[in-house]
Amino acid sequence: MSDVNNEALEQAPIKLVMNQLPAIDVPFESPLHHVELAKIAEHGESQGGVVFRELSLGLLTLRCTPNAEQATSIEAILGVALPSKPLTSVSSASGELTVMWISPDEWLLQVPQDKAFELETRFFAEVGGHYSLVNVSGGNTVFELSGEDVVKVLKKSTPIDFHDSEFPVGKVVSSVFAKSGATICRTAEQSYQLVVRRSFADYLWLWLQDASKEYGLTVTC
C-alpha cells in the first residue's frame, strides 16, 4: 500500500492533502532536463554578461484573504508574515522560505522541494477558515538570471521597468515574458528569479539564449 492511502482521504474529507514526492529513489526530471544544463555548465562558455541557472524548488500557491486569526497562524507556520504590500516579497531568516506577493489574495511560497508536503500538512492542521494552498512545484520551474547584462536581457523580454528606482531588490512582478509569462523577483543587486510554467520552459530557455547572445551566456548548476 502507498504511504498516502485513501483512509487519509476518508479521515480528512474537506480537502485533499497529498505527499506527491516518491518514497523511493525515482528519476527527477526538471522542465529543462532534456537540455542537459550540467553538460553546458561544464563545456559551455565560462564568461559572459548573463549567468543562467535552473532551480528546482517546492512551489505552492496560497490563495487567501487573511483575517487576523489566519494571519497569525500563517505567520506562525512560515516564520514571516505574508507580505501585504503589493509587489513585495519576504524571506525567512534562514533563506529557506520566500513568500512572493502575486495578487491581493495570492502568494507564491518557495521552499525546498521536500518541505512542500510538510507545509501543506501544517496549513491544513493549523489554518482555519477559507484559503487554498496548492502544490504547483511540478507545474513551474525557477530560472535564476544574473550578471552585469541581466537587465538588458530582461528589457528585451518584458515591458517591466527595471530601473533601480522602480525595481529594488525584493520586488516581484508578474508580467508577460517574451510570448509567455513569468513572475520575476529581484533577489540581489544583479540577480533575478523567473518563475515560469513548465510547458513554456524550453521556449523560454531558447529565448534567453538568443536574447543573451550578444552579451555571452554562462550556465551554472
Partner: peptide, 12 residues
Amino acid sequence: PHCGEYREEEEF
C-alpha cells in the same frame, strides 16, 4: 489598482 503601478497594455 491592485498592483498599484502602471503596466503595459499587453498584460491586460
